[in-house]
Simulated assay, not measured.
Amino acid sequence: MTGKIYLVGAGPGDPELLTLKAARLIAAAEVAVFDRLVADAVLDLLPPACLRIDVGKETGRHCVPQDEINAILVNLGLAGHRVVRLKGGDPFIFGRGGEEAEVLAAAGVAFEIVPGITAAAGCAAAAGIPLTHRGVAQGLRLLTGHRQDDGELDFDWHRLADPTCTLVVYMGVASAERLAGGLRGAGLSGETPVAIIERGTTPDQRTLFSSLADLAADMVRWQPKPPSLLIIGAVVNHALTPHMDHVGREAAQ
Results as ranks from 00 to 15, higher is better:
residue 81 H to I: 15
residue 145 G to F: 10
residue 69 I to N: 10
residue 47 P to C: 01
residue 195 A to N: 01
residue 93 I to Q: 11
residue 235 V to F: 13
residue 88 G to W: 08
residue 135 G to W: 03
residue 137 A to T: 09
residue 163 P to Q: 10
residue 218 D to S: 07
residue 218 D to W: 06
residue 228 S to R: 07
residue 97 G to F: 08
residue 200 G to V: 01
residue 58 E to L: 15
residue 86 L to I: 07
residue 176 A to C: 13
residue 82 R to I: 15
residue 91 P to H: 14
residue 17 L to T: 11
residue 62 H to F: 09
residue 160 L to S: 09
residue 202 T to F: 04
residue 66 Q to K: 06
residue 128 G to K: 01
residue 210 S to A: 11
residue 197 I to C: 04
residue 143 L to G: 01
residue 80 G to A: 08
residue 196 I to E: 01
residue 15 P to Y: 04
residue 206 R to E: 08
residue 232 I to W: 04
residue 182 G to Y: 04
residue 72 I to S: 09
residue 132 T to K: 01
residue 189 S to L: 01
residue 77 G to D: 09
residue 227 P to N: 04
residue 86 L to M: 14
residue 117 I to C: 10
residue 129 I to Q: 06
residue 249 R to N: 11
residue 219 M to Q: 09
residue 119 A to G: 14
residue 35 D to Q: 12
residue 66 Q to W: 00
residue 47 P to A: 00
residue 135 G to M: 03
residue 240 L to E: 06
residue 150 D to G: 11
residue 111 F to C: 02
residue 8 V to P: 13
residue 234 A to K: 13
residue 198 E to V: 03
residue 72 I to K: 13
residue 21 K to S: 11
residue 131 L to H: 04
residue 124 A to F: 00
residue 227 P to F: 02
residue 101 A to F: 04
residue 170 Y to I: 13
residue 116 G to I: 05
residue 99 E to M: 15
residue 243 H to T: 15
residue 164 T to A: 09
residue 136 V to I: 07
residue 128 G to V: 01
residue 26 I to L: 06
residue 9 G to S: 09
residue 237 N to V: 05
residue 176 A to Q: 06
residue 185 G to Y: 01
residue 47 P to T: 00
residue 152 E to P: 14
